[in-house]
C-alpha cells in the first residue's frame, strides 16, 4: 500500500531537476533502494531514494509524470510505495562512488550512510555539461539535510563548485582541507568530468575513475548511471579485480518481481556479466559483484 508523504521543501538542482524533501523518513529504507511515487489520476514511477533523514527524492522532468511532480508545492502530498528492491551493501571502509547524470541521487544517500559509519568516500560525477552536474555541492556539504549546499554558512566551502568556471578537478580536492567539524563528514574527494569540459575535467567519467583507483585503490566501487557507463565500469572493475555494486535502470512496472517487464536487454546484460533472467525491480536495482580473491 502507498503511504502519503507531505513535501516540506523543494530545491531546484538545475534547469530540469528538483529535489523534494518530505516530512518524515521512510522506515527501513537502505541506500540504493527505490520507491514508487504515485500521484492519483496521473501515474506512478520509480525513484531512487536520495536521502532518508527525512525522505528525499530527486526528480528530473523528463515526461508527463515528472513534470506533474515538478508542479507540486510545499505542503502537497505524494503517495509512496516502498522501499523496494535490493540496495547497496557497504563493503570495506574506503568507497569509490561513480554517478553519471542523474544517477547521483542514490549515491548521495550511500555517501551519507558510509560517512556516518566513519568510512572514507571518494566520488566521481560525470555529466554531459556543467549544468547537468547534479548534487555536487551536497556531496561536499557537512549538513546531512543539505541538498544543494547553498546555505549561508557553507558558501566558502562550495565556492569552487558553485562558480562552475573551473576546469581543474583538483580544485575540488582542496575542499577537503576546509571542511568543518560536524556530525556528518564531507566526502574525501570529489572528481567531476563533463563531456564538453565546462566543469571539471573534460572527458568521460571512466577516466576519473581510473585515476581515482590508481591514486588509492577502493575496497568497492558503487555506481549508478546510464547502461553504457555501467558496462564500461564493469569492464574496468573486472580488469582491476575490484568488487563493485551497480544500480541498473529499466522499465519498472509492478515493482514486486512478478510482471517480468524489467529484464535488462541481452546485450547490456552480457556486457556487464549479469545473470540471465535478472529482474531489475526485485533482484536489483543494485547488482552486488563481490568476488573472493
Amino acid at each position: 500500500m502507498h503511504q502519503t508523504f507531505t513535501i516540506t521543501e523543494i530545491r531546484t538542482e538545475n534547469y530540469r531537476t528538483k529535489t523534494f524533501i518530505f516530512d518524515r523518513s521512510l522506515p527501513g529504507a537502505q541506500p540504493g533502494q527505490y520507491v514508487m511515487a504515485w500521484l492519483p489520476d496521473v501515474g506512478e514511477k520509480p525513484f531512487s531514494i536520495a536521502g532518508n533523514a527525512p525522505l528525499a527524492l530527486m526528480v528530473v522532468a523528463v515526461g508527463p509524470f515528472s513534470e506533474a511532480l515538478h508542479r507540486l508545492r510545499v505542503g502537497e502530498r505524494v503517495w509512496v510505495r516502498g522501499p523496494l528492491g535490493q540496495g547497496f551493501a557497504l563493503h570495506g571502509a574506503h568507497h569509490l562512488l561513480v554517478g553519471g547524470g542523474y544517477g547521483v541521487a542514490p549515491l548521495l544517500f550511500l555517501a551519507r550512510t558510509a560517512l556516518a559509519a566513519g568510512h572514507s568516500v571518494e566520488v566521481c560525477i560525470g555529466a554531459r555539461t556543467a549544468e547537468d552536474v547534479l548534487l555536487a555541492e551536497a556531496f561536499m556539504s557537512t549538513d546531512s539535510t543539505d541538498f544543494n549546499g547553498l546555505r549561508e554558512e557553507k558558501k566558502s566551502d562550495t565556492v569552487a563548485l558553485t562558480t562552475r568556471t573551473s576546469t581543474d578537478s583538483t580544485d575540488f580536492n582542496g575542499l577537503r582541507e576546509k571542511k568543518s567539524v560536524s556530525s556528518v563528514q564531507s566526502v574525501d574527494k570529489l572528481l567531476i568530468t563533463t563531456e564538453d569540459g565546462t566543469l571539471g575535467e573534460q572527458g568521460l567519467v571512466t577516466r576519473a575513475v581510473e585515476a581515482a583507483i590508481a591514486a588509492r585503490r577502493p575496497d568497492c566501487v558503487y555506481a549508478c548511471g546510464p547502461a553504457p557507463m555501467l558496462t564500461a565500469l564493469a569492464r574496468l572493475c573486472q580488469a582491476h579485480s575490484l568488487p563493485h555494486q551497480f544500480s541498473w535502470e529499466a522499465h519498472l512496472r509492478c515493482g514486486l518481481g512478478i510482471c517480468g517487464s524489467c529484464e535488462l536487454d541481452t546485450q547490456t546484460r552480457q556486457a556487464a556479466n549479469m545473470p540471465a533472467g535478472w529482474l531489475v525491480c526485485k533482484d536489483g536495482p543494485v547488482r552486488i559483484m563481490i568476488h573472493d580473491s
Binding site: 502507498h2 506512478e44 509492478c254
Partner: peptide, 14 residues
C-alpha cells in the same frame, strides 16, 4: 499504465 499492481493487507491486486 502504472500503477499496475499494489500489495494490500492480504495479497496483491493487479
Amino acid at each position: 499504465p502504472n500503477p499496475v499492481a499494489v500489495e494490500w493487507d492480504h495479497g496483491l491486486l493487479n
